Amino acid sequence: MFDFRQLRYFVAVAEELSFTRASQRLHISQPPLSQQIQALEADLGVRLLDRDKRNVALTEPGRVFLEQARQILAKADEARSQVSQAAAGFSGQLRLAYTVSVTFHPSLPQTLLRFGRHAPHVRVLLSEMYTEPQFAALLAGELDVGFVRDLPRHEADTHTLRIDEIDREPLLLALPSEHPLAARRKIWLREVADAPFVVQPRELAATLYDRLTLIAAKADFHPLIRQHAQQINGLLMLVAAGMGLALIPASMCTVSLAGVSYVQLEDPDAYMLLAVASRREDTSPVLAQFLSVVAEARAVPNLL
């Protein structure tokens, strides 16, 4: 059976129509070139080239085989390129999840944009998922990487999962625009200790719920929960309706809703973690490329 070397030799002779020029192009001497062409013809059982001491011409079977040889070599080069790209992490797929609140933070779209330019042949499969389910999916091997809002709660998981912090995003207080404190630039949470709050159910969004409870506890009060919203952006509607106040990530202030104002908090714990989580043992080249893009973006101010 013929091999790729014989195909390359034949294509060179067929394109040059000269054994001398073909040997120069291939950087080999003429005798082994002639021997390989003869072996190819013997294997195929046809004469591919008519040649004499001065001229070389393709036979009709030679013209047909030339097109086939070019296609085979092109496919081989394509396969070699794809394998190399896969080994380097520039092709394949990446299963990525993110929490709803991350959609308001510039890190998600900017990272996806940079990674798309860096590795355009990687297919990114996106899923919207809360932080705790993301950790479970990562541990089960059902997810490759996730944008999370908290650290793993179980110590064993901290050894299995890799957490790359991106930001400690400030938390703001969303309150009705007519609220007496709405015109203030900064307040302490204890100043609204008697006010009702609206939150997401803890079973859905434990991170933000627990952060509110923590800050309130340090301010010596327990927040009065009046209403729940399934989605974080639903909290703003409840605030606008005068149902209560809400703690939200600072990136959500880009949402302009009539009747809602945002005030910074002085409390030192008024922040929300944003990190990228993955399995420590995952040696996927695609994941390595993605994490390198995240690291590069973090190293350059204003990119994340």
Rank of each mutant, 00 (worst) to 15 (best):
L304C: 05
T59A: 06
P180E: 13
Q38Y: 04
E16S: 15
Q6I: 02
R5S: 04
A288Y: 00
D77H: 11
E178M: 07
Q36I: 10
A246W: 04
A295E: 11
H105I: 03
A12C: 06
T254E: 07
A216C: 11
T160C: 10
M252Y: 10
S84M: 06
E41P: 07
E178L: 06
Q200P: 02
A205Y: 10
E41W: 06
A76L: 12
L171Y: 02
R149Q: 15
H105M: 07
A22L: 07
R162M: 04
Q264E: 14
S177E: 14
H121T: 00
F290A: 12
P61C: 01
D167S: 15
L138Y: 12
R149D: 15
A182G: 04
E142K: 14
A258G: 08
A182T: 04
T59V: 03
V11L: 14
G259V: 05
H222M: 13
Q230F: 05
T283I: 07
D267S: 03
F90I: 01
I248T: 03
F90P: 00
C253D: 15
L236I: 00
R21Q: 13
Q134G: 14
P196S: 11
G259Y: 07
A258I: 05
I248Q: 06
Y271D: 14
K53H: 10
N55A: 11
F19P: 03
V102T: 14
A86E: 14
L204C: 01
L112R: 07
A97T: 08
A288T: 08
D3Y: 01
F221A: 08
A288L: 05
R47F: 00
H27L: 12
T103Q: 15
D164S: 11
L304K: 11
A219G: 06
S107D: 05
L273P: 00
Y98S: 14
C253Y: 01
I163E: 00
L66F: 05
P201W: 01
G92Q: 08
M1Q: 08
Q82T: 00
D50C: 06
I187T: 10
E132L: 15
L212G: 03
G89R: 08
E78K: 15
A76K: 13
A12T: 03
F135R: 05
I72H: 10
P152L: 03
K75Q: 15
D267L: 04
L287V: 01
A275M: 09
A299Y: 02
S101D: 15
P109W: 02
V102P: 00
L304S: 07
A240S: 15
F115E: 08
S292G: 07
L44P: 00
A137Y: 06
P268R: 09
A219I: 02
A42D: 04
R211T: 15
P31G: 09
M243W: 10
I248Y: 06
V294E: 12
E169S: 12
P109I: 09
D52C: 07
L204W: 01
I215F: 11
T254C: 10
F135G: 05
T207A: 15
P32K: 08
L96K: 10
F290Y: 12
S34H: 09
A206I: 04
V100Y: 13
A12F: 12
R47C: 04
A219V: 03
L151H: 08
P109N: 11
